[in-house]
Every structure is written in structure tokens, then in C-alpha cells.
Amino acid sequence: MTHKILAVDDSRTIRAMLKTVLVNAGFRVDLAEDGIDGLEKLDAAAPDLVITDINMPRLDGFGFIEGARARSRHAAVPILVLTTESGPDLKQRARDAGATGWIVKPFDEAKLISVINRLVI
């Protein structure tokens, strides 16, 4: 069974890139446009892993992660933060929100896939 990944990003380009990269790597991919959209799609998508941007309209990545963790069904799903921000502050804030790991844009395909493979069962 191939793993499903929900990718949440407000940029169409990043969504398309993620979709291509992930599908090529053999994953099934669902896309969401922002935090609210992401939370709405969580149940239907039932992803094995979530990738989320931080800066998004309506609901940002931190809010999305907190919302996801609050739903018992998704409390343990690995969530990767994908963002252009870096620095120790991001790491701490992401972790406080409940993120599993973080990747800094522009992302390296190989690194992304190897991190994902490490986190999905």
C-alpha cells in the first residue's frame, strides 16, 4: 500500500512541485491551499504524513499543526514543516506546535524523500 501525503501550501507552484516530487517517489498525494483547507481535508485524506508551509492565509502552519494535533485521529501523524524561514526560533516554535520535523525551502528533493521515508511506517 502506498503512503498518502497531505501537502498544505498556499503557493500553487510549491504545491505542484511537491506533488510531482512525491508522486515520482511513489506516494499518493492530496493537496490543500491553507491551514483551514488542510484541517478540512485531514479526515478525508487520512494521510500517513503531512507537509505544511508556515506562512499561509486564513490559518498559518502553526495553527494548522495545533488543530491537527487536537484531533485525536491525527494526534500522532508525522507533520513536516516546510518553510523559507530558518533559525533556532522556527525549530522551537514548530516543535511547540507539535511538528515532527522541518525542512527549509528551497528543499532538496533527495533530502525530503529520505526524511519522509524515515517518518512513515
Partner: peptide
């Protein structure tokens, strides 16, 4: 555990 990690996956890696 609360942040979606699983020791078994770390060991697998």
C-alpha cells in the same frame, strides 16, 4: 510521541 515520532521508526532508520 506527541510530535508524531515513533522510536520504532528511528530504529528502522
Amino acid at each position: 510521541y506527541a510530535t508524531g515520532h515513533d522510536p520504532a521508526l528511528l530504529f528502522r532508520a
